[in-house]
Nucleic acid binder design. Structure first.
Lengths: 141, 141
DNA sequence: TATTGTTATACTCTATAACTATA
DNA sequence: TATAGTTATAGAGTATAACAATA
């Protein structure tokens, strides 16, 4: 069964690997009341890049309209806030609050632990190479 | 932006790579009136493994109840059919029809072409290694 | 008792179009 | 004329529980 036409199909392997990773991620994030997508936004904002909602949408491959409600939720919970961009009154810049930073730190640890667990059968070298190759595929530019 | 906390996060890269691959896949499959999931079922059935619906569900990480409606659709279109398993009257074995085989062949070509295009910036060696590593991650057993 | 396929339901995610305020 | 954010809506994907037939 493993040796089906799909087994050398990179798209299929990608889909299955991602499904496993998503499950593990959601399980790890549940205690923090975060989903993978809200966690990703926190991660993006955590670096003090001050991204606009548009930046977030593009980097996370989300529609701008989805970002609205995700940020709404995070803002309601006091984890991020919207700052007006002084140079363009149309755009909001998303920044992290102290509570957000703290929650993200714990969530980040949990995610890393889950990931380490999920890939425990890979050698450090294999993990490294996987990461490099995936970066190429995820950001082909 | 590319250099955010997420860039060395395998889960994130996996998610983004999969999103790109899904888009390309859906675009390639649209002319055949297939979605990625129905295509995957065809691919699994195409090898004459005669999988049960349960087998399909497990291998594709779908809930058995989802498989029902996917097979319903494919069967209505005459692409697959359900054969009773002689050794266990509870289970259906899913097999391909001639039309199904023919459609799958064309769809398979289209998917391969799209995939080749999507990974055209990788060397053959990199593609090979990516495939091997993903197989390890997708099937950790 | 446990398992296969099935039905039903609710929730999340994804995709699209249209609107407003700014540029 | 184009872009950022927003609202609304519909469709696809996901998760769960319960049931009949069979093992």
């Amino acid at each position: 069964m493993r040796a089906s036409a799909l087994k050398d199909d990179v798209s299929f392997l990608l889909a299955r690997a991602n499904a496993l990773s998503l499950s593990a991620g959601h399980a790890a994030l549940a205690p923090f009341n975060l989903r993978v997508r809200s966690y990703s936004i926190l991660a993006l904002v955590a670096d003090d890049i001050r991204p606009s909602q548009r930046d977030i949408a593009e980097h996370l491959r989300l529609d701008p309209s989805q970002v609205v409600s995700l940020i709404d939720d995070l803002q309601t919970r006091g984890l991020v806030k919207r700052d007006p961009d002084p140079t363009d009154r149309r755009t909001n810049v998303v920044v992290m609050t102290d509570e957000g930073r703290e929650l993200f730190r714990s969530a980040h640890d949990a995610v890393r632990a889950a990931e380490r667990d999920l890939h425990s059968h890979l050698s450090p070298d294999q993990r490294e190479r996987l990461s490099e190759l995936l970066l190429l595929v995820a950001f082909p530019d």
